[in-house]
């Protein structure tokens, strides 16, 4: 069963009196362990597609299933629980909580998962921080970390719940090229080790080079999808 299944998905927004069609009749699916990039110019619908896959928004038409669950039938609370159990996010601007340390940022998100004992949460949080190369920095606040280190915390935060799917919206856009490459290498490594599905939106050629599958979007439509086969 695919992790993500989009069938004839369309998304429209109302802007004033007019209706803007952000995605038109998209059909695609992502399997477990894929490392995919959604690319395309600004306004092509990359972020909209990620938002729909991340259950942050609802489709106007068509069906979207995450882990076999039909999204449009879920209410707000169920969607929150579904995101909590199945989806991790990495944002362009990291969005860490400034008053919490690296460890607390990770541990807080893990504690949102129900029925996890406190010591298990702490153990998992420390382990994932170690995996992303932040051993010894776990007590530092985000302001005491570099951009790359902050993005590593964000990745650890997304991974700690062991979700089936991680969505990253331009994860390297705020990083220099060296750090960006390190981050991509880390995500690729984690993808290989944990078989977590990663989907990025990006403009960055380097990110595309890491991706095994590249989906091109233009004007809300898929113009190409290599299906995981690189030339």
């Amino acid at each position: 069963m695919p992790i993500v299944e989009c069938n004839n998905v369309s998304k429209e927004y109302k802007v004033g009196a007019s209706v803007v069609s952000a995605l038109k009749d998209i059909s695609l699916s992502f399997e477990k362990g894929e490392f995919s990039a959604i690319v395309g110019p600004s306004g092509s619908g990359k972020s909209t597609l990620l938002n729909l896959i991340g259950c942050l928004d609802k489709v106007t038409e068509g069906n979207l299933k995450i882990n076999g669950i039909l999204i449009k039938e879920q209410n707000k609370t169920l969607l929150a629980d579904l995101r909590c159990e199945n989806i991790g996010f990495v944002f362009q601007t990291f969005n860490l909580i400034p008053v919490l340390s690296a460890f607390e940022n990770v541990n807080f998100v893990l504690s949102l998962k129900k029925n996890l004992p406190e010591n298990e949460c702490a153990e998992k949080s420390m382990k994932i921080l170690e995996e992303v190369g932040l051993k010894g920095l776990e007590n530092r606040k985000p302001s005491e970390l570099s951009g790359g280190q902050q993005q590593r915390v964000a990745i650890a935060r997304a991974l700690v719940k062991e979700p089936a799917l991680i969505l990253a919206d331009e994860p390297t856009a705020n990083l220099d090229s060296k750090t960006g490459e390190d981050i991509m290498a880390l995500m690729k490594d984690l993808n290989m080790k944990k078989q977590t599905t990663f989907i990025f939106s990006t403009h960055d050629k380097m990110v595309m080079d890491y991706a095994t599958r590249i989906i091109n979007l233009r004007d809300g439509m898929i113009t190409s999808d290599n299906g995981g086969k690189k030339s």
């Binding site: 995101r83 909590c84 991790g88 909580i97 998100v109 949102l112 998962k113 997304a158």
Partner: peptide
């Protein structure tokens, strides 16, 4: 607001 958006995206319920 952004921080809340992030937490809600990561599965924090509105009530929480």
């Amino acid at each position: 607001v952004r921080e809340m958006g992030m937490l809600r995206a990561l599965g924090m319920r509105d009530n929480d």
